[in-house]
Structures are given as structure tokens and as C-alpha cells.
């Protein structure tokens, strides 16, 4: 009995210490975002501000491009998601439901594509986009991510578990194949679509690599790219607004995660399959 409570006590202590370590940058970010300037530059250790300085947020939202970055992030993330779904769902459906000769070829392509990390394709895509003159546009940020082998794989798994009769019934009822995809298959695949959307939105909201390459115009910067512009411009005394900006950029996904934890962990761990 004593041994048990002792072991519980020790593991509880270690887990809480670990959690404090995990939270440290979050706490520090929030704390600095709310600290008045004199407290930020004081040599004393104050984990929490003595009074809340909302002005940092006002500065970040009005005197910098942070709202623009958020806007760009939203456009890019939703653009990528919509196109991914439009391209991916019919293909996954065809891989399960159609008896085409090309099925094995397309599926082999999907498996091969799973092996290729995005970084590998960056140079040729950059070259091609430069040639076409579409660098520094939303298209440059959206187009490369439309083919998603992971998405095809995920939806294919889901569709292959649906009863075949349902699709046959839809055919007899007079639906064409494309209509079956969007009116029957997709609504029933909403759990898979949610997991995929969470995965896709998180990955592209947080991505820095490609925006760093494809965008040189600050007007088009996504949130991670934008906050680096902000940081590189400020001379070191705007720490408060910088942290406020970091907080604002992190907040949407963190809040979404806190509200829909189960779906988030499912979606993001499904991403473990992704090559």
C-alpha cells in the first residue's frame, strides 16, 4: 500500500515536472505578450505579468501585417484543402469501386508518391513556377499540395469498408458515378474527411519551408513566414507585440485542438502514415 502510493507520488511528480517543461514556452509567450515593456526588460524573474498590457495585441493587430498574414493563411489553407478534396475523393472512389484496368497502375503511383517528401520536389517546382511567372501568387502556395497520396490512401481505406450494395443502389436510382462520389460516398466518409482536413490544415498553416521559397512579397506571407518578417524587422524592443503576434498565430489551431481533442489526435496521428 505504501509502496503503491509512493510510486504513484513519484510518477505524478515527474509527469507534472515534464508538463511544466512542455508548457514553459507557452507560458513565457503568453506572459511576455501581456507584460508591459518595463517588465519584459527587467532582470527579475517574473513568470507572470503584474498587470495585463493589452496594448501589445493592439500594436500587433493594427500596426503590423499580422491580420494580413492570418488572412493569407486562411486563403492558402482552405484553398489547398478544397482542391485536395476535389481531386482526391473521386480518385479514391475509383480505386475502390471501378473495375478499370488502370487501377493497379494508379494505386502503384499513390504508393510511390507516399515515399516522396515534399522537400524533394521543391527545386523543380520552383523552376517551373518561375518559368510560368506564378511565384509570389496564392497559386504558388496552393498548387504543389493538391496531389496528396496520403489523402487518396486514407479515403480509399474508408471507401473499401463501405457496403458495395449502397453504390449499386445509387446507380439503379439513376446517379452517375461523379454524383455517387459527392452525394453518397463523400457524405458517408465525413469522419475520414474530418481527420484529413485537420491533418492538412495543421500541416499547411504551420509550414514554413515552401512559403519561404515561393514567396518574397511580404503581402502574401503566410503566418509562419509573416512572423519571421515581423521578427527580423523589429529591433529588439518590440518583444511584447512580437509575442502577441506569435500568440495570435498559434491560437487558432491550439483552440481548435482544445475544443476537438479527440478528432485532432486522430487526425494528426493518422498523419503518421504519411511518408
Amino acid at each position: 500500500m505504501i509502496r503503491r502510493s509512493l510510486s504513484r507520488g513519484v510518477s505524478l511528480f515527474l509527469l507534472i515536472v515534464g508538463a511544466m517543461g512542455i508548457l514553459l514556452p507557452f507560458i513565457w509567450m503568453v506572459s511576455l505578450a501581456f507584460k508591459p515593456r518595463d517588465e519584459i526588460f527587467s532582470a527579475d524573474i517574473d513568470l507572470l505579468p503584474t498587470r495585463l498590457e493589452w496594448n501589445n495585441f493592439v500594436v500587433a493587430m493594427t500596426q503590423t501585417d499580422v491580420p494580413l498574414y492570418l488572412m493569407n493563411g486562411l486563403v492558402v489553407v482552405l484553398g489547398i484543402l478544397v482542391f485536395q478534396i476535389l481531386f482526391t475523393v473521386p480518385c479514391a472512389y475509383a480505386l475502390v469501386q471501378r473495375r478499370t484496368r488502370w487501377r493497379t497502375v494508379v494505386f502503384a503511383c499513390v504508393l510511390a508518391a507516399l515515399l516522396v517528401p515534399f522537400h524533394v520536389t521543391a527545386i523543380p517546382i520552383f523552376l517551373g513556377f518561375a518559368e510560368m511567372g506564378i511565384l509570389n501568387t496564392y497559386w504558388a502556395l496552393i498548387l504543389p499540395f493538391i496531389p496528396t497520396a496520403f489523402g487518396i490512401f486514407l479515403f480509399r481505406q474508408f471507401f473499401s469498408q463501405m457496403p458495395k450494395d449502397l453504390f449499386d443502389a445509387a446507380r439503379v436510382d439513376g446517379m452517375g458515378e461523379m454524383e455517387i462520389v459527392w452525394r453518397v460516398a463523400f457524405p458517408l466518409a465525413l469522419p475520414a474527411a474530418t481527420a484529413f482536413a485537420i491533418f492538412s490544415v495543421t500541416a499547411h498553416w504551420n509550414d514554413l519551408f515552401w512559403p519561404l521559397i515561393a514567396i518574397t512579397d511580404p503581402e502574401l506571407a503566410t503566418p509562419p513566414r509573416g512572423i519571421l518578417y515581423f521578427r527580423d524587422q523589429e529591433s529588439g524592443d518590440d518583444v511584447g507585440p512580437l509575442m502577441a503576434a506569435a500568440l495570435i498565430i498559434t491560437a487558432p489551431l491550439v483552440l481548435a485542438f482544445l475544443l476537438a481533442q479527440r478528432k485532432f489526435t486522430q487526425g494528426l496521428s493518422a498523419g503518421g502514415l504519411k511518408g
Binding site: 509562419p224 519571421l228 506569435a246 498559434t250 482544445l258 481533442q261 494528426l268
Partner: peptide
């Protein structure tokens, strides 16, 4: 939830933090 937080958070913003 706490341990999973960094996975969902924007890494670049957290790096600035």
C-alpha cells in the same frame, strides 16, 4: 492535452517563443 499541445501549435511561432 498538455503534452500534445506542441504538436498542434505552430512551430515557427513557438520557435520565436
Amino acid at each position: 492535452t498538455v503534452y500534445f499541445l506542441p504538436v498542434a501549435a505552430t512551430l515557427v511561432a513557438m520557435s520565436v517563443a
